[in-house]
Simulated assay, not measured.
Amino acid sequence: MATLYELTDNYQQVLEIAEQLDPKTLKDTLDGINDAIDDKAENTAKVIRELEGDINTLTSEIQRLNERKTALSNNVKRIKEYLQNEMEKVGKTKVKSERFTIGIQNNPPSVRVEDERKIPRDYFTPQEPKLDKTKLKDELKRGKEIDGAELRQKRSLRIK
C-alpha cells in the first residue's frame, strides 16, 4: 500500500494531467486516491492518539514518582533532624559503629537576608530587560506597527 506522501504526490500528478483525461476517469481516479488518503489520514490519527495516550500515562507516572521522591526526601530530612537533635540532647557529636560513622559538624557560613530593601545596591546584579511578548502581541493585535515584530497566524492539525 502506498504511503500518504506517495498518495498526495499521485493526486497532484493526476491534477496536472486532468485535461488529458475524460471526466469519468478523472473523477474515479481522484475519488480512489481521495479514499486512500482518507484511510491513511485516519490510521495516522490513530497512531497520534496512541502516542498521546502514552504521553499522558508517562506524565502521570512522572508526577507520581516525583511526589514519591519528595515524600522520601522529606522523610530523610526529618529523620536526620531527629537524629541530630537527639545526639545534641545527650552531648554527642560523633557515633562510631561497624557500618557508620555519624558526626555533627558545622556547615559553611550562609547569608540570611532580613530586609532586602536595606541592602546597598552594590550587592545586586543588574539584569537585562526581558521582552513582554504578551504586551507586544496585544499591541500588534490592536493594529500598532512595531519595527522588528509582526503578528503571525499559523495552522496546526486538530484531531477530534
Rank of each mutant, 00 (worst) to 15 (best):
E19L: 05
E98G: 09
A18Q: 15
L58I: 12
K46N: 03
I55L: 15
D38V: 10
D35A: 10
V90P: 02
I17T: 09
D22Q: 07
K92P: 06
K135C: 00
R155Y: 11
R117W: 04
Q12P: 00
M1V: 06
Q153K: 06
D132H: 10
N56C: 13
V113T: 13
N34E: 15
K92G: 08
S60E: 12
D22A: 05
G53F: 04
I159V: 05
S73P: 03
Q12G: 10
D147V: 10
E16P: 01
D9I: 00
K94V: 00
E50P: 01
Q63F: 05
K40L: 05
Q20L: 14
D31S: 08
R158K: 15
G143W: 08
L4R: 03
L140P: 01
N10A: 09
A71D: 10
Q105K: 13
L21V: 07
I104N: 06
R112W: 03
D31P: 04
S97R: 09
I37S: 11
N66E: 13
D28T: 15
Q153N: 02
T29K: 12
G148A: 12
L21S: 06
R112K: 12
M1K: 02
T57K: 04
D115G: 02
V14K: 11
Q20D: 15
Q12S: 12
K94I: 01
L140K: 06
D147L: 09
K24Q: 15
V95W: 11
E50K: 04
Y5P: 06
V76T: 09
Y123C: 02
L7T: 00
Q20V: 10
V111P: 01
R121A: 04
A18T: 10
L157M: 10
G103K: 14
E6D: 13
N107V: 07
E139I: 07
A45P: 01
S156T: 05
E128D: 13
G103A: 12
N10H: 14
D22K: 03
K80Y: 14
Y11Q: 10
V76M: 12
R49M: 01
D38P: 00
I48Y: 04
A71K: 06
K130P: 03
N106M: 11
P126W: 05
L4Q: 02
D35C: 03
